[in-house]
Amino acid sequence: MSTVLQGHAASASVSSFPPTALLQVDKVSLEYRTPQRVVRATHEVSFEVDPADRFVLLGPSGCGKSTLLKAVGGFMKPIGGDIRLDGATVREPGPDRIVVFQEFDQLPPWKTVKENVMFPLLASRTLKRAEAEERALHYLGKVGLAKFVDAYPHTLSGGMKARVAIARALAMQPKILLMDEPFAALDALTRRKMQEELLELWEEVRFTLLFVTHSIEEALVVGNRILLLSPHPGRVRAEINSHQFDLHSLGGVQFQQTAQRIHRLLFGESEPAASTDELGFADVRIAY
């Protein structure tokens, strides 16, 4: 675990005997363009996500985790490497990978809550209207919004909008659910509630989740496996198991130790919570 290369070798050898990985990201390098320059976001990042994993991409800003998620979503093409879902290379956006964004405006404001959930089902021609409606109501019930099916998004609170987005994603029954800091725009209490609900939903539905966050604690709580990315450009620093943690482990000794280990891996051993870091450990605690 001391070097990146060893980490790669280890995960490759593990995955070689059960060939069941749902998502394979293989040495993916990504670049994005600004008007002035082309910026390398990630450099040869590899990882594998198994079915029913809650796989978290964690790193400070600038580690390319959101870009990586967009690439898995098919919104950008890697300049090197390969992303395969169920063995097929990802080339363009598609309804088998539904993204839940951070922004609240991901819900078309001209559709009611129910229509919002039905929208991808109809747009992708997955289901007929009647079946789509039935399924939308089912998943809206699951996220506790049965009473608000005919409300318009602008009348909902931030947490409720996040719930609609999650119900909409689940209703599509995608092969993998991609979440790009879905709770980052919520207040701390609502965020905690949403994490709890997400875990409950996972217990029930067992979807496969790829979750991007910059909060160490959110990663430990939500994920069962965490990929740590170093910034500028994003490279794999470590992969860590976190299936043993949930919301009740917050503040526990083992939880704190793992959090500190992650912090050390991300920000270097020598400086404990350096103030110059964009994301000090202390900040993460408070932000939680």
């Binding site: 967009k70 956006p93 309804p95 964004f101 991901q106 078309p108 001209w110 929208f119 991808p120 747009a123």
Partner: peptide
């Protein structure tokens, strides 16, 4: 029209005229 909404539309496989009709015009 915000990028998020555009990406959401493309995510559901909307392209060309359907994209304009279902996402851009109402937005």
């Amino acid at each position: 029209v915000s990028d998020t909404l555009r990406m959401a539309g493309r995510n559901y496989g909307l392209k060309g005229l359907r994209f304009v009709g279902y996402i851009l015009i109402p937005a």
